[in-house]
């Protein structure tokens, strides 16, 4: 599976792409495969105050709903509206057009608590066995 080196990861299978004081958030290839067909995405509203490790969005498969957690705290500055009409982008391009929302970080220091691609790959290995 592909876990890009330039991203940081959570144990709950979100990725974050940090660019200065802002960051984009999405879910990993492992997560989209586990969920299978993504048929619905509920995004936060712009200006929503996301709190690290608390729910910020919802992804639904045919069978179930999954909470997507904010990897770090921050204020939502943009959301990927495309997902409302085309939720399958999460399956097709989870690190690109399938992104969820963008945050203005409230504490950039929190990024250091997240996993590298290598650590995340190891986390998945240990969770699977």
């Amino acid at each position: 599976m592909n876990f890009p080196e330039n991203l940081k990861y959570t144990k709950t299978h979100e990725w974050i792409s940090v660019n200065g004081a802002t960051a984009k958030v999405g879910i990993t290839e492992y997560a989209q495969k586990e969920i299978s067909d993504v048929v619905f995405v509920e995004l936060p509203k712009v200006a929503f105050g996301a709190i690290k490790e608390k729910g910020a969005a919802v992804v639904e498969s045919v069978k179930a709903a999954f909470d997507i957690y904010a990897p770090v705290s921050g204020v939502v500055t943009a959301v990927n509206k495309e997902l409302e009409s085309n939720p399958g982008l999460v399956n097709q391009d989870c690190y690109g057009t399938g992104w969820f929302f963008e945050l203005q970080l409230s504490d950039p220091g929190q990024v250091a608590t997240l996993m590298s691609a290598k650590d995340y790959a190891a986390h998945i290995q240990s969770a699977a066995h």
């Binding site: 299978s36 067909d37 048929v39 498969s61 045919v62 069978k63």
Partner: peptide
């Protein structure tokens, strides 16, 4: 078996 490929 829940699915082999995808439910859809």
């Amino acid at each position: 078996p829940l699915y082999y490929t995808t439910i859809i």
